[in-house]
Design a protein around this nucleic acid. Sequence first.
DNA 1: CTGAAAGCGCTTACAG
DNA 2: CTGAAAGCGCTTACAG
Lengths: 351, 351
Amino acid sequence: VARRVTLADVADRAGTSKSVVSAVVNGRAPGVIRFSTDTRDRVWSAARQLGYVANPIARRLAGGRTQLLGVFTYLTVFPLDADDFYHPFLTGVEEAAASRDFDLLLFTRSDAGRRTIYRGGANSLQLADGAVLFGSDEDRAELTRLVTEQYPFVYIGHRDIAGMSYVAGDYAGGTRAVIGEIAAHGHRKISYLRGSHDLEIAADREQGYLDGLRAAGDLEPLIRRVDTDRDLAAAFLAELRRGVTAVVTEGSERAGQIRRIGADAGLRCPEDYSLAGLSGRVYDPDTGPGLTTFAIPRHEMGVAAVDALCELLADPGREPIRLTLPCPLRRGTTVGPPAGLGASERPGTPT
Amino acid sequence: VARRVTLADVADRAGTSKSVVSAVVNGRAPGVIRFSTDTRDRVWSAARQLGYVANPIARRLAGGRTQLLGVFTYLTVFPLDADDFYHPFLTGVEEAAASRDFDLLLFTRSDAGRRTIYRGGANSLQLADGAVLFGSDEDRAELTRLVTEQYPFVYIGHRDIAGMSYVAGDYAGGTRAVIGEIAAHGHRKISYLRGSHDLEIAADREQGYLDGLRAAGDLEPLIRRVDTDRDLAAAFLAELRRGVTAVVTEGSERAGQIRRIGADAGLRCPEDYSLAGLSGRVYDPDTGPGLTTFAIPRHEMGVAAVDALCELLADPGREPIRLTLPCPLRRGTTVGPPAGLGASERPGTPT
DNA sequence: CTGAAAGCGCTTACAG
DNA sequence: CTGAAAGCGCTTACAG
């Protein structure tokens, strides 16, 4: 294998120094490093004759940057289920990384079967200039440590960790819009059947729910915690008996369960009750098509996370970046006028 | 931002030299570079305390390994369509990389919008110890050059390039099995409506088709090239008029078209004609469920590609590795007995 | 206006 | 048994 042509070879041939060759080849204006147009031409022709190609690795080493962006997830990066929730984040990250001239480093190694950032004590993300992290199984202690060490990273998803940058979806706003949509159909008793965890996104949804009710004319909050499937069936039917005409819940899985429970009880949706999701797929194998919900701009969140990371890299001293992207309403077919309302009383279709 | 911890820092702390730290950290047996177990322990504890992580760029420039496996595709790595054909390759690659203790390096950067291995003339894959490549839009000149440069890589897919390693699906065997299945139902005139390209996989399918006919008792080959959709309709109907009772074709897209053409002509499948795919999805939005075809073990191919690559890395001088993984028959509902055959004449269900 | 030198963070002969 | 030194191929102050 022939030895590769280096910068030094070109400099020799052109009868000048490596500095000048570097400047010329990199198309630097003759500002910091000055050279005559004659020199420049000699350099170019020498480079061409020798077939010089800069070694990207050496470039990166000298530049002090790896031009590598890390991607860390607590589960597999490539979802086994191709229809995975996280997939669009990745397409966004890839698109933005490519346009910013970074390659992507996927941390796939695991420590005794478990993915962890601090493998054997050291921050494995250090291989990259910075990283984008996501996933719902995060280890908050690790994230905190990452912040302490001032490693540049952006989380995709709302996480209130001091000093940490994140890009989130506006679940509160999305929920508000869903409640607004339901109220616009004339519903007055809108119940929120919520799961039991108390993470940031749960709080965001609850806030959006309360805000939505207030905006709809100070409707009464009807929040029911449902921990088990059995809870869910009981809670749902009890709410209807109490006069609730519309129900919202997180995710399309639970929305699907509610539909089944309703169907088992001989109830049609939206004729007998209205139903909406707070995020989750619009189409779901279980739910069927047409669940009214809000969309999470996942691809855009991936792009925004990389952009934020690049800003962090450009200005290491800066404040954490916290972005919240709009989650637009997705009108489906599961919200209609309340059952009790005669056709004449129905408000017009909301715009 | 804290300066990154370097080898020199660890050496200082451990009270030894960089050479020793390098050897210890890389797990070199105390052969070439000798050190006491005491020194080794001091190095490890210093590395742990400092959180040392080697810079892959520097490692690579100095001629070492990075424990990074490259993934290069000519399209985006993360398919925009989550149901993408290539997705299972990636899950296999990730799984195998993790188990072999490699991280994955995704080459996402592009040169003027086009993905290319030789960006600006230099092999951009160099940063990784080796790479897995795939995609149908490959640039064969680049692949040849990669072989010439002795860069370790494995292609996923059958490509006859001298000296190149690949992991392929056994399309010939899969096609043979499909033909066998059709023949077992009693068909004697089985036509192959094939697309026009002449790449390796097309040749493999044709070979499998011919072998299958021979095995079924020297049936007559009936190969029709179809370049356009219009060709397809004409060819399909013409074949049926000539007495053909079963048709095979590549991919589920074309199979779907054939079904539509058949339906437009009032023909039912499999009552009026039998149809089978030669690979392609079992379920397809267009084709509907139940296309008889053969499966491509994509996840397994991804795993096998990484395994092969690791063997290449372990023994750089070795012969290229060429693996062909079985493509099992997938029985659907589109193959039945020929229309002309009375129930009494029908052979038993094939085992 | 131009070149010699240091440095990026590693690895690997080589000298003691 | 161990360490000082050269080298990988660049970039970028800095000195002339």
